[in-house]
C-alpha cells in the first residue's frame, strides 16, 4: 500500500445504542490516506470515540461500509488478528498493567504474533529506546510519571508495526507541557514509522497539530479541513 491509497474508507456508517434510541454514528463518511495524521474533534457525545472504536474493530457498526487497511470490517471474522496486526491503540489513561514491568507491558501485544521471547524483548527494547525509556525498562508503571506512562503506551501501540495508530485523548490526563512532549513524540514516530495517526481530542490546540482536522457532530462529519 503506497501513501496515496486510502487506509481507511468509511461510507454512511451507522451505529446506535439502547435499541436505536441513541444514534452514536448517523451516516458518517470518512477517508484517510496512508501515513496521514488526522485529528477528530467534537463535543462530548458527538461520536468521536465510537468512530475510533469502529476503526479499531473494538465495536461493530449497524450498517454502512468500513474498510481499514484493505479489510472489510463488516465482513471479516478475524477481528482479533486485524487489531493485532494493523492497529495500535493509545488511550487517555494509558491502561498499563501494574504488576508488569515497563518492557513486559510493551511486549504484551506480541503474544499474538509468532515472535519468541528474545525477539519480543528486542523489539520492545528498540521502541523503549525511541521513547527514551531504555533506563526504566524494569520499573513498574506505578513508579513512572504520567508522561512516562504514556510513552510506554505509545511504544506498546507501535510494537507490532501497525498500519494505524488510534489515539483517544492521548494528552487528556497530562499537564500541557507533558502533553506537548507526547504529541511531538507521536508525530515524530508517525513520520519515522510511516504509520497513519488518527487522534481524537476535544482540545483545539492538540487538534491543530495534525495535518488534517475533522469535526464530528451528532454522529456525522461536520467539517474536514486540511491544516498543512
Amino acid at each position: 500500500m503506497n501513501n496515496t491509497e486510502n487506509v481507511i474508507e468509511i461510507k454512511n456508517l451507522k451505529k446506535s445504542y439502547d435499541h436505536g434510541n441513541i444514534k452514536a454514528l448517523n451516516g458518517i463518511d470518512l477517508t484517510v490516506k496512508k501515513g496521514e495524521f488526522i485529528s477528530i474533534m467534537g463535543p462530548s457525545g458527538a461520536g468521536k470515540s465510537t468512530l475510533l472504536n469502529m476503526i479499531g474493530a473494538l465495536d461493530t457498526a449497524d450498517e454502512g461500509i468500513i474498510k481499514v487497511a484493505g479489510i472489510d470490517l463488516m465482513k471479516t471474522k478475524k477481528l482479533n488478528q486485524f487489531r493485532s496486526q494493523e492497529i495500535g491503540f493509545v488511550f487517555q489513561m494509558h491502561n498499563l498493567i501494574p504488576n508488569l514491568s515497563v518492557i513486559e507491558n510493551v511486549e504484551i501485544p506480541m503474544y499474538e504474533t509468532n515472535a519468541n521471547s528474545s525477539e519480543m524483548r528486542e523489539r520492545a527494547l528498540e521502541l523503549l529506546k525511541s521513547v527514551n525509556l531504555e533506563k526504566k525498562i524494569e520499573q513498574k508503571p506505578t513508579k513512572l510519571s504520567g508522561g512516562e506512562r504514556q510513552r510506554v503506551a505509545i511504544a506498546r501501540a507501535l510494537v507490532n508495526h501497525p498500519s494505524i495508530i488510534l489515539a483517544d485523548e492521548p494528552t487528556g490526563s497530562l499537564d500541557s507541557k507533558t502533553g506537548e512532549v507526547i504529541l511531538n513524540l507521536l508525530k515524530e514516530l508517525h513520520t519515522q514509522e510511516n504509520v497513519t495517526l488518527v487522534m481524537v481530542t476535544h482540545e483545539p490546540y492538540v487538534g491543530n497539530m495534525a495535518e488534517r482536522l475533522v469535526t464530528v457532530l451528532d454522529g456525522k462529519c461536520k467539517t474536514d479541513e486540511k491544516l498543512r
Partner: peptide, 16 residues
C-alpha cells in the same frame, strides 16, 4: 476488567 479490554484491543483472542 479494563485491563482485559486493553488485551482485547491489542489483539488478544478470547481463547488466550
Amino acid at each position: 476488567t479494563r485491563e482485559i479490554g486493553v488485551l482485547k484491543a491489542v489483539g488478544w483472542t478470547d481463547k488466550r
